[in-house]
Amino acid sequence: MCHIVEFLNMDRPHRSLTALTALCLLGSVAIVSAKDVLVGTRYITTEVQTASQVETGVYIAATCNGYQGDNVNVTVLLNNNPRWFPPAGVVYFYVVDDHSKNESEALCTNHPAGQSVLPYCVIDKWSSKSDLYVMTTAGEVEAVSFTIDVQFMPQKSKTTWDRPSKTLQRKRSVKFPVHRSGDYYLQEIVRLMTTERLAYLDELLLNVSFCPNEKTTQRYTIESTLFSVDVISSYTQYICTDLPCEVDGPNVVKFNGNQLPSNTIELTATHAEWQQIYVLVVCWGGNFDPQVGDYVGDFQYSGTILPNP
């Protein structure tokens, strides 16, 4: 299954889709007769994690066999220790693509041999068809608080990660146990990496794929949100499960026709039926652009899969 956000310009208004070029694995995504758009997927902890002394954990990003060729950045934020000073409590971690693999088979680690412990590790090219596992072990300090962020990025992305130029950590080698309990599935967010523009009543089609995991397969909600970044434009959105996806068309399963600067639709699943959706975006107003000869709006998009109790 591909994790895709695909963007296609539509003639205004209500005309049928003329081309659909699938670009998988959240790489650069084509806009017909326009520029490439960078999109990415993030997996995050939704609550602050607290670990006891030398407590272990497993944090899983469900990939559905996607992301081959993407760069991966795994970052841990220490809420009470931004300098990553070991006496104040740190988290050691490594990344694998199989729950049974140990540290010797790690794809990346935040404590390379002979080096200081870091808040991140990077995989230059994800090549696995399995899920991603972040294997953590807290240091020898009680109640270490942290959050985790796993970001998949296309190789052509110009985005860079802020890496500390100076560290205060002592060098240390950590041994991780092979067996763990208490697996935690990270929350998936599909989002635009850049701001997009549409003229008044122009349309854009987004092809969005999600990967339900063991905790969300039976019941989950997809939150699809468009939001203006220019404070003057507004948008409507229409969600379809099949093409063509048109305003007032038969394939629309849910819509929000309110012209809002932040337009949200929620889809509740009962058996993993919402794994791929088409989101039709319609722009309503914006700043006047003399080069375009029309009112133009700037927006971003995010799609989040949320487990339901």
Rank of each mutant, 00 (worst) to 15 (best):
P82A: 01
I148F: 03
L23F: 13
R42S: 14
E188D: 05
F176D: 03
E266I: 02
Y235F: 14
V282A: 07
K158A: 04
V29T: 14
N287W: 08
Y133M: 12
N287Y: 09
N71H: 08
T221K: 15
M135L: 15
T21N: 08
N102Y: 04
D298L: 12
L168A: 02
P309K: 13
V296P: 01
D242P: 03
D242K: 15
V54L: 09
F152R: 02
P307K: 10
N71P: 00
W84R: 11
V117S: 10
V90T: 12
E142A: 12
C108I: 08
H3K: 14
L226P: 08
A51E: 12
V91A: 01
Q291E: 13
R170I: 09
K129N: 15
D289S: 12
T216K: 07
Y92K: 05
R180F: 14
A269W: 00
L192S: 14
V39M: 04
T304K: 13
M135D: 03
T225Q: 14
Q115N: 13
L25F: 11
N79W: 14
T18R: 15
N207Y: 00
L77I: 15
Y278K: 04
Q49P: 00
W284F: 05
V252N: 01
K215Y: 06
F299T: 04
D11Q: 14
F176C: 06
I265Q: 05
E140P: 11
Y92T: 07
T217M: 12
A62R: 05
D162P: 05
E214H: 13
T236A: 05
Y120Q: 04
S157D: 05
S104E: 13
D298A: 12
M193A: 09
L132S: 02
T56C: 11
F146E: 07
K125I: 06
G114S: 08
F299M: 06
A34P: 06
Q169S: 15
M153E: 06
V39D: 03
A138Q: 01
C108H: 05
M135E: 10
S181T: 13
Y200R: 11
Q68G: 04
Y92C: 07
L132P: 01
E188F: 06
S302N: 09
V208L: 10
L243R: 03
V282I: 15
D289V: 14
S127C: 06
I232L: 06
T46A: 08
R180Y: 15
G69K: 04
G286V: 03
V282M: 13
T304W: 01
D183C: 01
I239V: 13
P290Y: 01
V282F: 03
V122L: 14
Q155K: 15
F288T: 06
Y185T: 04
Q115F: 10
R15A: 10
V74H: 04
W284H: 14
N308G: 10
R83P: 08
V96G: 01
S16K: 09
Q218G: 07
F93D: 01
Q300S: 11
D202T: 07
K158V: 08
S104M: 08
N251H: 12
